[in-house]
Design a protein around this nucleic acid. Structure first.
Length: 276
DNA sequence: CCTGAAACCTGTCTGC
DNA sequence: TGCAGACAGGTTTCAG
């Protein structure tokens, strides 16, 4: 589930209200429960819980695929969902999801639950968010990331464009779905060497990345399988999971290949392979 | 620097 | 119905 648009959807719902629940900003923690300790990276699970008791949530935001919950002077609770799960608000008395790894009970009776079936997700509580987020590349919507700057960074890399776009040190937020969708929109083959792209292609690619992310956010993310619900972007996929079906642009069957160990979907006609 | 393999997990779906 | 195998939105570590 969780790439930038899904994480953004969760962050906005927690901060502003949404997905059927009002905002939790201003709520005070009355009790903490950790059900699967390895999910807590730092500090120790006991210290983690002790720090959060009585803390008041002051803000929620997103950086890349990380969710950041601010608790005033208590610090920053940072969450990464990895391959599955959600951060959900439950009204008083409602049972928590089956795969809840930790939960915060608020003084008003509501519960914030970290639902993470595959146990890949991780949580940190830190004084400085840079401890966790410091390695991340630029946000895709950062105005400082101009087409010229993006092109210059591509020029410095010789690897395949798809794994590079998914490298969070290069750019923060893209995952398997949105990368394939952006490359199709920009008409670039996923195995193209990054430094073989022209300035025009770089500009087109950056615009395509921003367009698919914007559409994904507007659709509240994508829902696939049982992992996540609520979003509708899956109805707008142009290539992802469409192998054998006609490209909407040229009617050539969409192909599925492996690139960087990930299933990759592309149109062989709209996205021809190129070398320098 | 770049690539590929493996590991971390649970659940769903497909085919025999 | 049972069961084996493939596959899944991510990241890290290691070998070459």
């Amino acid at each position: 589930m969780p790439e930038l648009p899904e994480v953004e959807t969760i962050a906005r719902a927690l901060r502003d209200g949404g997905r059927g629940q009002p905002s939790i900003v201003g709520a005070r923690v009355a009790a903490v429960e950790v059900r699967w300790q390895p999910v807590i990276v730092t500090p120790s699970p006991a210290a983690w819980a002790a720090h959060l008791i009585d803390a008041v949530l002051t803000d929620v935001w997103r950086r890349g695929k990380y969710l950041v919950l601010e608790w005033g002077k208590t610090g920053y609770l940072i969450v990464h969902l990895r391959m599955s799960g959600d951060l959900v608000v439950l009204p008083p008395g409602q049972p928590v999801p089956k795969h809840t790894r930790w939960l915060l009970r608020f003084a008003d009776g509501r519960v914030l639950a970290f639902d993470n079936p595959r146990k890949f997700g991780r949580t940190w509580l830190v004084a400085d968010p840079a401890e966790v987020l410091g390695h991340l590349g630029p946000e895709p919507f950062d105005p400082a990331l101009t087409p010229a700057r993006f092109f210059a960074r591509l020029q410095q890399r010789r690897g395949q464009i798809k794994p590079l776009l998914m490298n969070q040190r290069f750019l923060a937020g893209l995952g398997n779905i949105y990368t394939d969708e952006a490359l199709h929109r920009a008409q670039i083959h996923p195995r193209t060497a990054a430094n073989c792209l022209s300035a025009e292609q770089a500009q087109r690619l950056l615009a395509a990345i921003r367009a698919v992310l914007r559409e994904g956010i507007a659709a509240n993310g994508a829902s696939i399988d049982w992992m996540y619900r609520g979003g509708t972007f899956q109805n707008t996929f142009r290539v992802y999971h469409r192998q054998g079906e006609p490209c909407y642009t040229c009617y050539t069957p969409v192909e599925r290949i492996q690139v960087g160990q990930r299933s990759t979907f592309f149109c062989p006609r709209c996205q021809p392979f190129q070398t320098c």
